[in-house]
Design a protein around this nucleic acid. Structure first.
Length: 481
RNA sequence: GGCGCAUUCGUCUAGGGGCCUAGGACGCCGCCCUCUCACGGCGGUAGCACGGGUUCGAAUCCCGUAUGCGCUACCA
């Protein structure tokens, strides 16, 4: 039987790294086994739905390169895999369960339920409140109907026995039926709940492996019971651990960068994020860390997924991004950089000589987001950094250094990085200053900051004319002091 | 409260009875390289939650405790 897996987010907000990790594992598992990936939007709760969330989720998955074979994308060959468009399907299942006696109408009001729950909390049957209307008499039903009370549909969970889930990540997990309670399948308004829609769709779509977060582990026995009541076979499951913030709490917006979009905006490479997330709960041999997507696909297996929760480590991701960035060849680097600048709406995206800057920045950038600060001033003229400029003004040797640099650079036979270097070295010798001392004012004059790309490369990139103009401008500023 | 899951350096992890005086990586510290910032190189710091078993032998198996997380919704 070929593998069919799905990623089923609810459109309640952006895709955070925990969700992405799940999507990635689903995708890697499918690609590894030559299976099919399905994207299904679980929008049964219209209250919590957020406008634009579906598009944002899709955009994030696209950027990461996680392509889904069947998705609700407009114009796609399949779908619609929006649960909001599958109402008849759920209704039919509920009708059947009702007819079979595996489901029943429950007329409890919210208040009644709340009271019952509070009472049952301390007893040895905490699920009792969910089955108060399980065995209503015909008269009671008639009376509730006459009152015009809305009813929810509940599943008639067996009172005895237990369900064993043989999870691919966690092994056997046993759940007592008595403690499960009678799950609401259909809300008062006639819309299905997740507990109904999710397993039903997995069944209808022929899903073979359910790969999802551990938060859903306790729902699994209910869903298995439901599917079996419908005569179906429950898929294999793999429950992934949660991804936590530094405070060990479930990762959320409060933890800073948590959405894919934020990493994209900071100039992270999708393949770096993918690599990092793959290693967040899975490992290949415990040693190898830097892997391409192709390698991940080849090596991924659920057997090696770690059941323990993982804290999301921004620092390590940043390091890994730098590794991926430095591993790119010049052409790929230029393309990725330009794409980033375009995305960010930076005017630098149009710079014709972007490719010439690659060797200047590639060893230095941890993320493309740092590009502008490092070499933006080489591509367009900018106001120098005030603090740095003050250092230039306060430097007692600045004037003679700049004079010497101007003279030396003007006399270069050819404008190459090597010549610029020897020219500046000569300045140091002539003035009997150490490079670190002599280059400080030059750097500030050229780059507008004490922190910048390599000096020789920067000057070579700027060209004779522009370089001299900047040096002279700084020299003139000194004259005013 | 109940049920479930989890527990190896600060963090991600390797480890599935002797190969472990516990390996790798990020971070941190030190040194080197060096025109700033980085990169890079070398070295170092640091861990099997606790208590009982089982066994000749346990990080590895079992039980208990603790702690964390999840669920306990007409959220997913």
């Amino acid at each position: 039987m070929s593998v069919r897996v799905r990623f089923a987010p609810s459109p309640t907000g952006f895709l955070h790294v925990g969700g992405v990790r799940t999507a990635l594992y689903v995708w890697l598992f499918a690609r590894h086994h030559g299976g099919t990936t399905v994207l299904r939007i679980e929008d049964t709760d219209t209250e919590r739905e957020e406008a634009g969330a579906i598009e944002q989720i899709q955009r994030s998955l696209d950027w990461l390169g996680l392509d889904f074979d069947e998705s609700p994308r407009v114009g796609g060959p399949h779908g619609p895999y929006l649960q909001s468009e599958r109402s008849e399907h759920y209704q039919a299942a509920v009708d059947r369960l009702l007819a079979q006696g595996d489901a029943y109408r429950c007329y409890q009001t919210a208040e009644e339920l709340e009271v019952a729950r509070a009472e049952a909390r301390q007893t040895d049957d905490p699920a009792l409140p969910t089955r108060l209307h399980r065995d209503l008499t015909a008269e009671q039903i008639a009376s509730f109907e006459a009152e015009g009370r809305p009813a929810v549909i509940r599943f008639r969970t067996p009172l005895e026995g237990e369900t064993v889930i043989d999870d691919l990540v966690r092994g056997q997990v046993v759940f007592e039926h008595r403690l499960l309670g009678d799950t609401v399948l259909m809300r008062g308004g006639g819309r299905p709940t997740y507990q109904l829609a999710n397993p039903l769709d997995d069944l209808a779509m022929g899903i073979t492996h359910v790969i999802r977060g551990e938060d859903l582990l306790s729902s699994t026995p209910r869903q298995k019971l439901l599917v079996e009541a419908l005569g179906g076979t429950f898929p294999q499951t793999a429950h992934l651990s949660m991804i936590l913030g530094a405070d060990k709490k479930r990762l959320s917006k409060r933890h800073g960068a948590a959405s894919v979009e934020e990493f994209r905006e900071a100039g992270y490479l999708p393949e770096a994020l993918v690599n990092f997330l793959a290693l967040c709960g899975w490992s290949w041999d415990g040693e190898t860390e830097l892997m391409s997507v192709a390698e991940l696909i080849e090596r991924f297996s659920l057997e090696r997924v770690n059941p323990a929760p993982a804290v999301f480590d921004h620092e390590k991701l940043a390091w890994m991004n730098g590794q991926h960035l430095r591993a790119l060849d010049a052409g790929a680097y230029t393309a990725a950089l330009r794409r980033y600048l375009e995305d960010a709406g930076s005017p630098l995206a149009d710079a014709a000589r972007l490719d010439e800057l690659v060797p200047v920045v590639q060893e230095k950038l941890g993320a493309f987001g740092e590009f502008d600060a490092l070499v933006g001033s080489l591509l367009e003229s900018r106001e120098p950094d005030a603090e740095s400029w003050q250092k230039l003004l306060n430097d007692e040797h600045a004037a003679r250094i700049l004079d010497a640099a101007i003279a030396s650079l003007s006399a270069l036979p050819a404008w190459t990085v090597e010549n610029v270097e020897s020219g500046l070295r000569a300045v140091c010798e002539e003035l009997e200053l150490k490079p670190r001392q002599a280059f400080l004012p030059i750097r500030i004059a050229i780059a507008g900051s004490t922190v910048a790309a390599g000096l020789y490369e920067s000057i070579a990139f700027l060209g004779l004319e522009a370089s001299l103009a900047r040096l002279q401008h700084a020299r003139a500023a000194l004259a005013d002091v």
